[in-house]
């Protein structure tokens, strides 16, 4: 697993990379990047929902508002990994 890079900034706006397709799965979703052919897994449904609507929020941090506070840190870490692997991109 690539380490999250410093380039992810929760205060920036992000969206799902247009080159990435999400396939719904019982546990969450499978994310496939058509550009670099990488497969990733979003391991819970709340994260899938968040990623799908990420682009509608001015920043990643604001997108977290609908989640319980205890989920904020782990979700930010997940987003950082997704950014590092180009699954989500800055708006």
């Amino acid at each position: 697993m690539p380490a999250p890079t410093a380039s992810f900034s929760p205060d920036r706006g992000y969206r799902l990379n247009p080159n990435v397709a999400l396939r719904p799965e019982p546990f969450g979703a499978l994310a496939y990047h058509f550009g670099n052919r990488r497969l990733s897994f979003l391991k819970d449904l709340a994260l899938v929902e968040l990623v799908e609507h990420l682009g509608e929020h001015p920043s990643a941090r604001e997108a977290l508002a609908t989640l319980p506070a205890a989920q904020h840190e782990p979700t930010l870490r997940a987003l950082a990994v997704l950014a590092a692997t180009d699954m989500i991109v800055p708006v």
Binding site: R23, E25, P26, L39
Partner: peptide
């Protein structure tokens, strides 16, 4: 654990 989820199958094959 993701492997546990895989044991129950996916909506479509990965491979």
């Amino acid at each position: 654990m993701l492997v546990e989820q895989f044991k129950h199958g996916l909506n479509a094959p990965i491979c």
